[in-house]
């Protein structure tokens, strides 16, 4: 477990609607590691996840992958990463198998069996059912089955346990464990416990609002918050 970290985020800060939601977050992840993000609602778990994925630009700080800033080779990083957001990202008009095949082919992965992936989440027999007819839990499973359709080193799971029953949570735990054994890395934002081998935990705490108490009145030069990204 003493390998060098592949993913690093240094002093990350996020702005949401002109409001600073977190600041000074450091993330490191080496092969085989699991990082659990915790924090109260609105602390910015999803934002941090999207920031690591490259969907949100950091207000401050930098994410690096294999030692290089993610922005330098965005396509290379995207090819090694799968992001499973809190939305399922499925097309309801297509069947489970079609959704998975589409996902795999768009990422250039050939002939990984969608059935095998669905079976790992216990819905192998639903592969020909259009997603429209599925329950929230079943959709969630299809969405997670994408992790097994295209190979990727890094998995970003935003609230993966939402709508899952105990059986499915066990299955996800097993899948995550197997991925880690193969040298994969997982970041999961979740309130509940993910079964399987324990990982690191990072708690996101909101910045102290009393920190720059009278910055506005006395020294507008210092921090009006107007110099976005300067």
């Amino acid at each position: 477990m003493a390998e060098d970290p592949l993913l690093e985020g240094r002093s990350l800060a996020a702005l949401r609607g002109e409001r600073l939601i977190f600041t000074g977050i450091d993330v490191t992840l080496a092969p085989g590691e699991l990082l659990k993000l915790v924090g109260r609602n609105g602390a910015g778990k999803s934002t941090l996840m999207r920031m690591i994925a490259g969907l949100v630009t950091p207000f401050a700080g930098q994410v690096t992958w294999r030692g290089n800033p993610v922005g330098d080779d965005r396509d290379g990083f995207c090819a090694e990463m799968i992001y499973a957001g809190h939305q399922d990202g499925l097309k309801t008009a297509l069947t489970a198998a079609e959704n998975l095949a589409l996902f795999g082919r768009l990422r250039g992965a050939e002939s990984r069996s969608a059935d095998h992936a669905l079976a790992a989440f216990g819905i192998g027999d639903l592969s020909d059912l259009p997603v429209r007819f599925m329950s929230a839990g079943q959709r969630r499973r299809v969405s997670l089955a994408r992790l097994l359709v295209a190979p990727a080193r890094l998995w970003l799971l935003d609230e993966p346990l939402t709508a899952l029953d105990t059986g499915a949570i066990e299955q996800l735990g097993a899948v995550v464990d197997a991925h880690r054994t193969d040298g994969g890395m997982v970041i999961a934002a979740t309130h509940a416990d993910l079964p399987g081998r324990p990982g690191k935990v990072l708690e996101i705490v909101p910045p102290d609002p009393f920190d720059d108490d009278d910055a506005f009145e006395d020294e507008p030069d210092a921090s009006d918050g107007l110099e976005a990204g300067a």
Binding site: L55, Y83, G89
Partner: peptide, 14 residues
């Protein structure tokens, strides 16, 4: 609306 725009944005092409 269904979140697939995220997936499209994260494809390894510009």
């Amino acid at each position: 609306e269904d979140g697939s725009l995220d997936q499209l944005a994260l494809l390894p092409i510009p």
